[in-house]
């Protein structure tokens, strides 16, 4: 593997975006969606996740290490592009640009989100529950920051899922790629709906 290191890194970057990071994102949005039922339902679901065995190990293996690699290598990829949507305003070129913009926004959002909801807990022992999120999201600025961050993350995942299928050579023909565009659009809409419903449930 010493040869073709860049190929290995790019493929690893593509894989990690879906497994485990994409899977974690979907799980995270589903668990948080319990907030729309009741504060107790959310607290119960969150406590179930907190009680999973080997929690710290799981967090490092499934979230922190893959996310760090994906984020750092992703920033490098984003800044080696020279975007040209003004000259070539095709749909896929816009998706290419948006994938990079939402990646950067998601990174900023996640750094803040992890600090606020995980590191603060680890350092100061702040309790993570429905009330904590309700307090954060009661500020209109934070509410909109979360709206933009969550939509960016879901877009980045859905569109990244599309390019995952191309990068691994699963969808080769233009037709299969087009069908996949609609399928990933569906993924984007469903999870955006869940994310927004959750944020509104916390804030109002």
């Amino acid at each position: 593997m010493a040869e073709n290191r860049e190929f290995f890194n790019r493929r690893l970057h593509s894989l990690l975006g879906v497994v485990p990071i994409g899977l974690f994102l979907m799980q995270h949005l589903v668990v948080n969606h319990f907030a729309t039922y009741s504060p107790e339902a959310f607290n119960q679901a969150a406590h179930f996740m907190e009680g999973l065995p080997l929690r710290i190990f799981l967090e490092f293996a499934v979230i922190y290490i893959p996310l760090l690699f994906h984020a750092i290598y992703g920033v490098y990829i984003a800044f080696t592009a020279k975007n040209n949507v003004s000259r070539y305003g095709f749909f896929r070129n816009w998706m290419f640009l948006l994938q990079r913009i939402t990646g950067i926004i998601t990174l900023i959002f996640i750094v803040w989100h992890v600090w606020e909801t995980r590191l603060a807990y680890a350092i100061y022992g702040t309790e993570v529950n429905f009330d904590m999120m309700a307090t954060i999201l009661s500020s209109p600025f934070m509410f909109w920051f979360y709206v933009i961050g969550v939509i960016s993350a879901i877009f980045h995942f859905a569109n990244g899922l599309w390019s995952f299928f191309v990068t691994w050579g699963i969808t080769v023909t233009p037709r299969s790629q087009k069908v996949l565009t609609y399928a990933t659009l569906g993924v984007f809409i469903i999870f955006t709906y869940m994310g927004m419903a959750t944020l509104i449930a916390f804030a109002y």
Binding site: N84, F90, M95, V166, G169, Q177
Partner: peptide, 27 residues
């Protein structure tokens, strides 16, 4: 990076992005 500009721009209508995806599978 799958911007797929190439297949739109190619004056000869070569299915460049299909080639790339097929090579991805081969790779």
């Amino acid at each position: 990076g799958n911007s797929q500009n190439c297949v739109q721009a190619c004056p000869k209508g070569i299915p460049l992005t299909t080639s790339i995806a097929a090579l991805n599978r081969e790779a």
